[in-house]
Design a protein around this nucleic acid. Structure first.
Lengths: 217, 217
DNA sequence: TAGATTGTTAATCGATTAACAATC
DNA sequence: TAGATTGTTAATCGATTAACAATC
C-alpha cells in the first residue's frame, strides 16, 4: 500500500547515507546518533531523522541508530539485496570503462552482456564478455532476465536504441547519452549527463572569478 | 557587484537550456517563446522566464527569445566562451574514456595532460598525450595554467591527490571518486558519484515493482 | 530514575507556479 | 492599434529546520 510519495531529494540522499554508514561499519562503529552523523556528513540532524522516518523508525530513543542494522535496511530500501542483471549498450570508451567497474558487482549489479551497433566490434571481449550485435538482443534479454541497460551510445544512435530496449521489455535505462529519453511510465530512466555536470563546474568557476575580480589587482 | 545569490537548482538547469537551444539552432529556429520551449523541455514557461531573468532580460515582449542570442548568452554565463585547460588525474579505464571524449574540446575544455601514480603507466600515450607521474605535476600545472583537474583515481588515493592538487593551486576538481572532498572555499568541486546514481535507479526499480506487485498475479 | 536521543509536529524558509501589468 | 509574450510581483507549494513530547 505505502501510498505516500517520497520526494526525489530524499531518494538522492539515501545512497550517501549508505556510503557513510558503510564507512562507519568498516571502522567497527556500533551505533551513531543523528547528531554525530550530521557532523560527519554536514547535513542537519533534523534532516537525517526526517529522511529516515519516511521509511520507518530505525532508531531508538536515548541510543541512536545501530549502524549495521541501518546500513542493511537502507540497502534493502535501495534494492541492493537483489541481483540486477544488466547489459551495456555501446561498447565505446565509456561503455568499456563501465564494464571494468568491478565495484558494481558487489552491490548486486551483474553485467551479463555488452552490445554495440558497429560490426567491427563483434566478438571482441571486454572483461571476458564478448561484444554482441543488436540482432542478438531480444533473445539475450529474455534468456538472462535483463533489467537494466546502460546506454553509452552516442546521441544520434541512442534514441532509436532506447526504443528497441523498451520493445524488448527493459525495466530501467541508465542513460549516458546527451538526450532526454521519451519512455513509458513503467521504464525507469536515470540520466548521467557528464557534459552538463562539467558546465555546472565551469559556471561556478566563472562565477567565483567574477566575484573576486578585485583580488587580482 | 551582482550580490544576489543564484540557487543551485537554477544553475543545474542552465546546461539543459543550453542543450535545447543548441538543438533549435541546428534546426535553424530563429525565435522561440517561453511557452513553446516549455512544451519541448517539459518544464513550466514560468520557470523558464524566472530562471533566465536571474541573469538578465534576454527576451522581448510579443516576440519571445532569439535562439542564437540566448544560446550565446547562456554559453557566456556558463563560462563556455573561455578556454579551460584541464588535466586528468588517474589514467585508469574511466580516466582514459574521458580523455577520449572529444566533445569537451568543443566547449572550451582543453585536455592538456594526464597523470597517474602508477609507474607502469608512465609514458604510455592516451589520445596522443603521454601519461606523466605526479612529480611532474607542479611544474606542468604552472606552465599550462591548469584550472580543472578530473579526478578519476580510486577512493583510497583520491583524498591525498586532492591535497596535492590544491597545494599546487588547482581552481576546480571534477571528482569521480566516491568520497566527499574537503576543500577550501576557493576550490570548486563538482561530484559525479556514479554508484550513487545507479543506486537511485535501483531504488526506483524496486519501488515500482512493489507498487505493482498485484499486477503480476 | 535521569539523561539521551528519537520520532513527529509546527515554524520557517526557499523554490515553483500563477497572474498580470508593461511593452514590443 | 491589437495581439503576443515578456518581466516581475504575488500566491502556492514543498522541503528544510526547529522544537519538544515520547520513550528507551
Amino acid at each position: 500500500m505505502e501510498a505516500k510519495q517520497i520526494s526525489k531529494a530524499v531518494i538522492k540522499r539515501l545512497p550517501r547515507y549508505y556510503r557513510y554508514l558503510g564507512e562507519l561499519l568498516e571502522d567497527n562503529v556500533e551505533r551513531i546518533s543523528s547528531n554525530d552523523l550530521s557532523k560527519k556528513m554536514r547535513v542537519t540532524a533534523s534532516q537525517i531523522r526526517q529522511d529516515l522516518n519516511n521509511f520507518g523508525g530505525f532508531g531508538q530513543q536515548g541510543y541512536g541508530y545501530n549502524v549495521k542494522y541501518l546500513y542493511t535496511e537502507i540497502g534493502k530500501i535501495l534494492g541492493l539485496d537483489i541481483v540486477h542483471p544488466m547489459i551495456i549498450v555501446g561498447a565505446g570508451n565509456l561503455g568499456q570503462a563501465l564494464a571494468n567497474y568491478v565495484e558494481f558487482e558487489k552491490r548486486g549489479f551483474k553485467l551479463a552482456g555488452i552490445f554495440d551497433v558497429n560490426p567491427v566490434l563483434e566478438g571482441i571481449a571486454v572483461r571476458g564478455i564478448e561484444i554482441q550485435m543488436i540482432s542478438d538482443l531480444p533473445f539475450f534479454m529474455k534468456e538472462n532476465n535483463i533489467e537494466i541497460a546502460i546506454l553509452t551510445l552516442p546521441k544520434n544512435k541512442a534514441r532509436d536504441m532506447a526504443e528497441i530496449l523498451i520493445e524488448n521489455g527493459i525495466k530501467a535505462i541508465w542513460n549516458f547519452a546527451h538526450i532526454d529519453l521519451d519512455t513509458p511510465d513503467d521504464v525507469i530512466v536515470e540520466n548521467v549527463h557528464l557534459s552538463e555536470s562539467l558546465m555546472t563546474l565551469s559556471y561556478n568557476l566563472s562565477q567565483y572569478r567574477q566575484e573576486h575580480i578585485d583580488d587580482e589587482k
